[in-house]
Design a protein around this nucleic acid. Structure first.
Lengths: 108, 108
DNA sequence: TGCATGTTTGGCATAATATGCAAATGTTAG
DNA sequence: CTAACATTTGCATATTATGCCAAACATGCA
């Protein structure tokens, strides 16, 4: 692992890390259906406004979402939609785990 | 976000989290070229044997790699090869960040 | 049996650091 | 100016990831 590889891996890991949180993952998936404003997330989750705003900031800084401010509202949308394609694969991993996750797997 | 969604998102996030570390990401990518034994990783990285073993255990427990013990050596291989497909997308995210990462991007 | 090689585990220090709430601050529309 | 929408700051808290060391375990070979 040379220096360049290391730097590149760190950059990639940072992107994955941003998605490696249940709340952020869920929000990213919601954005697959189109842009959403912060207030919509606040309505859908039982978190403080500031908490949600922070999570979105993490996704934004990772380059996963982009922001569009319109009027009083701030809309977030996926910047690189392919991030959701690989959720299929993550689900495949979970299925392959073959643990006692029957209940979980029924929803994949 | 109901209970089921939450549980599922937690499971997915756990998989991503396992890959969200430079060392583990690098190892997973190395495995794309075929199985490797622990000692090969030790030779390629400047980490303690135990450190590498622990990282591999994280990947294993996440369901990303599987183990094959042959003789004195332990071989690891990708259990769900598609995990590497989405690296293309992660790289796309990095490219899209368009920050001052020219040096980094030249290696994507 | 005993030793060398390869690997895992337990313990540990350290630092990091993520999370989510509360309060204060911005921003826009009306 | 006020209300609605959003971000930032500060903070407490707990968590916990990381990587080294030493010890234990496993396997093959002499």
């Amino acid at each position: 692992m040379n220096e360049q590889e290391k730097t590149l891996c760190e950059a990639k890991a940072a992107v994955l890390k941003a998605l490696a949180h249940p709340t952020r993952l869920w929000m990213a998936e919601q954005l697959a259906g189109g842009e959403k404003c912060v207030c919509e997330f606040v309505g859908a989750m039982d978190f403080d406004f500031s908490t949600i705003s922070k999570h979105l900031a993490v996704l934004k800084q990772a380059g996963i979402v982009e922001v569009d401010k319109r009027g009083k509202q701030v809309f977030y949308r996926l910047k690189v939609p392919c991030v959701l394609n690989f959720m299929n694969c993550v689900e495949a991993v979970i299925k392959a785990q073959g643990k006692d996750q029957a209940a979980l797997m029924r929803h994949l």
